[in-house]
Structure formats: structure tokens, C-alpha cells
Design a protein around this nucleic acid. Structure first.
Length: 746
DNA sequence: ATGTACAAGATTTTT
DNA sequence: TCTTGTACAT
């Protein structure tokens, strides 16, 4: 196979089998810029991986000449695996990865050109916030009007737009001198700490490309082909980064769907995809419009909804499959009632053989998961919340990592500060202040300042002794770092520092879990030979440990659901103010509404066979009962593809738009709470096409009176046993009915 | 240095 | 409602 291989011969390659014409075009259009406008469920990722494999199989480029960019590590991993499967050999260290991971890689090679050392630390969100706090204090920022979080958000926004402090214009918010000063100081401080935040991984690259043209030219020559997934989610910095790199060979292939751009709030620029053809003259635009995922009614409902948005590139999705069931819309009394309805439907589907792993509940905001969790626990349906606190974001894990960071880099002040008094060593605010003052006066790190302070009597005897001991510990651990493997070293550090002991002594219900998490951390370190490599992994790769059993109902936010698909999708909470979210409307007006609508579109198009939309008549918002109004998005669903659940007549047999909005008050019980009739409605499902897995029956291993422990509710005593359901009086959470599988003996 | 009491604020989130 | 943070007392 050579470059001169005729297209027809290439097209007969086995990995192209099963692609439709436009997919094949997208794979084979190998020279010049390509934009693949791919709708939901059209197999865009498949196209991208096949294209990557094709370029390699046809020997148009060697592995090192390819750059494939994704947004998440998960996507990168999947792409890597699929390409390996196609070409039948491992990809090794090819350049397949996230923007940030690839940016970090380039930056490490040339760190000194932007004022960093190549072993710079990558900060997490918590470190960033603490740093901003220090900066705003000095700069005299009005913290009432601009809380630290807001300042950090602003700094991140500047970074997302590729703006270093000297490039922030008045129009970008740089007219506030104090905020700009805070940003400048923040960046200076990062350099002092030899640290970079996530934004810097790209921002410093841009500076590097600008100030060292020879470096840029090198990479431009190197990357013969570049591929980008989810292009609609790129921010300005990422766009500039890509454009700079692609300038050499001009073989940039971007895949994206303007209708699925849902990240503008974190800097994504939908304009990037809209003006691709202007940016890359002569670009070939290929549309993928055949949807392979959803049944006809779901696709039509989603398409009808998104048609309400202006400024689209416009695609007409179609499906060759069956029409399937209509999208079900249901009004419920309140949030609890809604959760009950959804869970009943889940149970009904399970009884018809739909396994839990094929169903998902997609919510607008994180707090909505609670009601569903509680209900699912009560009825005993296994579930998993995806995207809550990730493993490496948990407090105990971050503390442990802070210890490791100080071992690896004595001058990592942020990490040192985090653990200096954890567990409590009597080194509180006063001692820390003294340390800070000494560090500032001597222009040195906290560790260095601490060493110097120990030789004076500025600290009282007790804190002085503790500090001396801590420093000795670190010196000893550092000496071990060469000989011990990272996993063993970590176990030693966690033990000798008293950190594990601290959690063992703690009485709260989750303390036990935290100790286990620490153990898990040590286990996960087994794969690493060097501490530095692990710390980079933690900062950048943060794998979501969702490898656990898949036979669970997934609960996640709509944002978290992008790129996934399920047979059955529940979309609760379609109410004005919640969805579209009031904040989105207040902050971004019409544009915000359109993004919310895209979010609704993403939600609906996750469903292969069944989609259930629901809303509640009233909902508790921060403890207050607030009347809720059905979302305007419900009105926008085309009636022909929607089926209204509940009492016929109330909704006029499917005319959802007859619901008056906004009303505000719901005096008529019946209108929103078809409670009594709910059970009579059997879901209409083509049973043949579902895999049948009969629900297992269980016998209880518990007896009344027994003490137990529950992951979520803590300790309690069993009052009654009913099959596999237990009634338990919890010490803290009150009396609840839970499934025994969630409970262990205390 | 640590504990208590009360006010304020409470999306979406990857890296 | 519930969590988090800050002011003040111990």
C-alpha cells in the first residue's frame, strides 16, 4: 500500500465495510481541511477512528505524524483501542489524547521558554482557588462584588480565550485594573511555584508558538494529519492551538455537531465550527445525517425541538429504522411523585426484561439526583451516579496526593499548606502566618522558610517541635523515594504521617470508606515506577472509575451524558427555571436559551428506543415549595411524535400545548397528578426486541434487631425484614426502607 | 487553637 | 433545607 494507491482499492479495505457513502467520503478525503458535520447518533466517532486507521493502513503517515485530539481521556482511550483493533498492533506512544495532555507534553519539552522548569506541577481547581484568594487580598479587589470564585472564573475565561495578562483588552473585562492586577500576580505566582493550571497548558503553548517560531515550525512539519473530535466544544485557546499546528500541512479534519454544543459556559465557542470554512478555505464539508441510534419518533421529536434554534448549520437527520414508540410526556405532582413514576416505570421495564444497565436518568442539575437515588434505594433497583465526586477529587485522596507532592517537590507550597496541619499537629493559622511571613521575607518556599524558622525561636516550643518532626519525616520519605516503589512509599507516608490513623479514629459514617479509598490509591500506584509519572497521571488523566458493574441504572447530568447512548432514557424536571435553567437565561439571554435547547436535544438523542420526559407541578427549591411551570421545550416537541401519559381528556389527547403557561398555581389536583391511574398504564414495548433477563430473587441474610451499616445513611438498627427489603432505624437519618444489598453488618 | 453560632448562598464541568 | 464560611468566645 502506498500513497498512490487508487481510491477504489483503498475503499475495498476491510475496515471500510459497513460505512455509508458520506462516512466513507469522510474517511477517504485525506488531503486538505475537512469538516465532518455529524448529527447525533450518526457514527461520527467511528468515522474518526476509521479515518485514523486508514491514514496509517494506507501509509499516508507514520504514527508520529498523526495528532488526534479529544476532550476526555475516556474518548482518547476508546479511540486508541479501536484503532489498535483495526490495524492489529499497539499504538504505543502515539499522539492520541486530550487537548490538555497533548499541551502538557509539548510544554514539558520547552518549559524554560515560557519561564517554567520541565518538572512543573499541574494545579487542581482547589489550588487555583487558594491562589486566587492570596492574589485578591493583595490587589484590593472588591470581594463583595467579585468573590474569589468569580475572579477565578474570570481568569479562566481569559485563559480560555487565549489571553495572557498583557493581552487582555478592555472589551474582555480588562478595564478593571484590580482584577487584571490579580490575574498578573496570579500568573507570576504560578511561575514562582513552578506550576501551571489547566488553562496554562494551552496558554503557554500559544506563547511558545508565538515567541519561538522555530519550535512551532517543527511541530507543523511533524503533524502531517490532525484529527479533532467534538470540534463544537473547542474554546478560543484550543482553536488557536489547533490552527497554529495545522497550518503546516493543512490536513485538519474536525468532527462536530453544532447542535450539541453545550459547553459555552466554560469557554466553548460555537463560532469555531460555524466559521470553519472561512478559516480553512477550500475545506471539504461532509454531512453525516443518517442516524443509526434512535427510533423514528424520538429522532423526529428531537429534530422538531432543535429546529427552534436559529444560527444552525442545519442538518436533516433521518433514520432507516422503525418509528418505534412516541416520546412519553408526563406531568407529576411534585419531585417525589416524579421520582416514584420514573422508578415504577423502571421496575415495569425490568419485569419485561430490560436490564437496568440499559436505562438512564438524565437530569439538568446535580441536586436532582438525590430524589431518584432515594427512590431507587427504597425499591431496590441498583443504580450508579456518574460524574459525582470522582476518585481523585475526594478529600482523603487529595490530601494523600498533597503529601506525595511535597515529597516529590519540597517547594510545592500549595500542597504543603494543605497537609501541614492534617492530621492536627497544632500548626494552625498563627503558625502558618509566621511561616508565610518568613517565606515572603526570604523569597523562598514554605519548606525552606520552615527550616530557617526552626533555627530561631520565633515559634512557640510546641508547634516548633511538631514542625521539626514533620520536616524530618519529609526528609526521610524523600530519601526513601529513590529506593522504594511509589506504592510502598505512599503506604509508608500515609502510615507514618498519622493520616490513615486520623480517619480510623473518625466516627462519621463515611470514614470507613475513606480508609478504603486510601488503600485503593496505594493499589492504583502499583502501575507506576516513578512518583512524577503518577502525579501527572492524577492531574491530567483522572480516569473515571466507572468500570464497575454495568447492570445498574445510570443517573447523570445531561452534560455528562454526551456521547453516550441508552435504550431507555428518562428526562425529568422539564420545568421553566430548572430546564431551561434560570441562570442560563439570566446570564446569556437568547444564546443561553439556545444552549439549553441543545442540551434538551442531546438528552433526547441519547435514547435508542424509549424516551420519557416529565415535569412536576411543584418542586422544593432550597427547602421552599415553589410552583413549577412545564418547560417551554415541552411545547416545542412536535405533537405527532409525543404521547401524553396520564388521564386522557385532561391533556386533550396529546395536545400538550393546551397546558396553560405560565400559571404559577396548581389548585387542580387532577391536572398534574394522575396518581391513582398511574399503575394502570402499561408501557408499550416490543418485547421481542429486548433481551430477557429475569430479575433474581433474594433471601435476606439479616434479622430484626441487628446493627448494620449503610453507605449513605450510616449506622442503624433493623426494625423489620420483608424479603430483601429492610426497615431500618438509622442513628442519624431516621427510619427508612432500604434494600439489603445496600447494607452490611456493623 | 479550637469550638460554637449565625448568616449567606446554593448550575452545568473536563482537564 | 442544608452546607459552608466567618465572626466571636472559650
Amino acid at each position: 500500500m502506498t500513497d498512490s494507491l487508487p481510491i477504489s482499492a483503498q475503499a475495498s479495505a476491510p475496515y471500510l465495510a459497513g460505512l455509508n457513502d458520506s462516512q466513507r467520503d469522510a474517511v477517504l478525503a485525506t488531503e486538505g481541511p475537512v469538516l465532518v458535520l455529524a448529527g447525533a447518533g450518526t457514527g461520527k466517532t467511528r468515522v474518526l477512528t476509521t479515518r485514523l486507521a486508514h491514514i496509517l493502513a494506507a501509509r499516508r503517515a507514520t504514527p508520529g505524524q498523526l495528532l488526534a485530539v479529544t476532550f476526555t481521556n475516556k474518548a482518547a482511550r476508546e479511540m486508541r483501542e479501536r484503532v489498535e483493533a483495526i490495524i492489529g498492533r499497539p499504538t504505543g506512544s502515539w499522539w492520541i489524547g486530550t487537548f490538555h495532555a497533548l499541551g502538557a507534553r509539548i510544554l514539558r519539552r520547552h518549559a524554560e521558554k515560557v519561564g517554567l522548569k520541565s518538572n512543573f506541577t499541574i494545579l487542581d481547581a482547589d489550588d487555583q482557588l487558594r491562589l486566587v484568594k492570596q492574589m485578591t487580598e493583595g490587589a484590593g479587589v472588591d470581594t463583595k462584588r467579585f468573590p474569589d470564585r468569580a475572579v477565578l472564573a474570570l481568569i479562566q475565561r481569559w485563559k480560555d480565550r487565549g489571553l495572557t495578562p498583557d493581552r487582555v483588552t478592555a472589551a474582555e473585562g480588562g478595564d478593571d485594573r484590580r482584577l487584571l492586577a490579580a490575574y498578573t500576580r496570579y500568573q507570576d505566582r504560578l511561575r514562582e511555584l513552578n506550576a501551571a493550571d489547566f488553562g496554562d497548558l494551552l496558554l503557554h503553548c500559544l506563547t511558545l508558538f508565538r515567541e519561538a517560531p522555530e519550535v512551532l515550525a517543527d511541530y507543523q512539519r511533524g503533524f502531517k494529519y490532525m484529527l479533532v473530535d467534538e470540534y463544537q466544544d473547542t474554546n478560543v485557546a484550543q482553536y488557536l492551538w489547533l490552527r497554529a499546528l495545522a497550518m503546516g500541512h493543512n490536513n485538519l479534519c474536525c468532527v462536530g455537531d453544532d447542535d450539541q454544543s453545550i459547553y459555552s459556559w466554560r469557554g466553548a465557542e460555537i463560532a469555531n465550527i460555524l466559521r470553519f470554512e472561512k478559516d480553512f478555505p477550500g475545506a471539504k464539508v461532509i454531512r453525516l445525517e443518517q442516524n443509526y441510534r434512535s427510533t423514528g419518533n424520538i429522532l423526529a421529536a428531537a429534530s422538531g425541538l432543535i429546529a427552534n434554534n436559529g444560527g444552525r448549520l442545519g442538518k436533516t437527520l433521518w433514520s432507516a429504522g422503525e418509528a418505534g414508540d412516541k416520546v412519553q410526556v408526563r406531568g407529576t405532582w411534585d419531585g417525589e411523585d416524579e421520582a416514584r413514576c420514573v422508578c415504577e416505570e423502571i421496575e415495569a421495564l425490568q419485569n419485561r426484561g430490560v436490564s437496568a444497565g440499559r436505562m438512564a436518568i438524565l437530569v439538568r442539575a446535580g441536586f436532582q439526583t438525590r430524589e431518584f437515588e432515594e427512590r431507587l434505594i427504597t425499591v431496590g433497583v441498583p443504580y450508579k451516579v456518574i460524574g459525582g465526586l470522582r476518585f481523585y477529587e475526594r478529600q482523603e485522596i487529595r490530601d494523600a496526593i498533597a503529601y506525595l507532592r511535597v515529597v516529590a517537590q519540597p517547594d510545592d507550597d500549595l500542597a504543603f499548606e494543605r497537609i501541614v496541619n492534617v492530621p492536627k499537629r497544632g500548626l494552625g493559622t498563627a503558625a502558618l502566618r509566621t511561616l508565610h511571613e518568613a517565606a515572603r521575607a526570604g523569597r523562598m518556599s514554605l519548606t525552606q522558610a520552615a527550616e530557617r524558622l526552626l533555627r530561631t525561636d520565633e515559634l512557640k516550643p510546641k508547634p516548633r517541635g511538631e514542625l521539626a518532626k514533620l520536616l524530618e519525616d519529609f526528609t526521610r520519605w524523600r530519601a526513601m523515594a529513590g529506593a522504594e516503589r511509589p506504592a510502598d512509599l505512599t503506604a509508608i507516608v500515609l502510615d507514618e504521617s498519622g493520616y490513615v490513623e486520623m480517619w480510623k479514629q473518625e466516627k462519621s459514617p463515611d470514614a470507613q470508606g475513606r480508609v478504603e479509598n486510601l488503600r485503593e490509591l496505594v493499589a492504583s500506584l502499583a502501575d507506576f515506577d516513578a512518583l512524577g509519572g503518577f502525579l501527572e497521571h492524577v492531574a491530567l488523566v483522572m480516569e473515571n472509575d466507572d468500570a464497575e458493574e454495568s447492570e445498574k441504572v445510570s443517573i447523570m447530568t445531561l452534560h455528562g451524558a454526551k456521547g453516550l447512548e441508552f435504550d431507555v432514557v428518562f428526562l425529568p424536571g422539564w420545568e421553566e427555571r430548572l430546564f431551561p435553567h434560570q441562570r442560563a437565561l439570566e446570564e446569556s439571554g437568547a444564546a443561553g436559551l439556545e444552549e439549553e435547547r441543545r442540551l434538551a436535544y442531546v438528552g433526547l438523542t441519547r435514547a435508542r428506543r424509549k424516551a420519557y420526559v416529565s415535569f412536576a407541578g411543584s418542586r422544593r427549591v432550597y427547602g421552599r415549595w415553589e410552583p413549577a411551570v412545564p418547560s417551554r421545550f415541552i411545547d416545542e416537541l412536535p405533537p405527532a411524535h409525543v404521547e401524553v401519559a396520564g388521564t386522557p381528556g385532561v391533556y386533550g389527547g396529546g395536545a400538550v400545548r393546551e397546558i396553560e403557561r405560565p400559571t404559577g398555581l396548581f389548585s387542580d389536583d387532577d391536572a398534574f397528578a394522575p396518581r391513582q391511574r398511574r399503575r394502570q398504564r402499561a408501557p408499550v414495548i416490543d418485547a421481542d426486541s429486548w433481551q430477557v433477563t429475569p430479575p433474581p430473587k433474594k433471601e435476606s441474610r439479616f434479622a430484626a434487631g441487628q446493627r448494620i451499616f449503610h453507605q449513605k445513611f450510616g449506622y442503624g438498627r433493623i426494625l423489620a425484614v420483608d424479603g430483601d427489603k429492610l426497615e431500618i432505624a438509622f442513628d442519624k437519618a431516621g427510619t427508612k426502607k432500604v434494600m439489603e444489598s445496600f447494607v452490611e453488618a456493623a
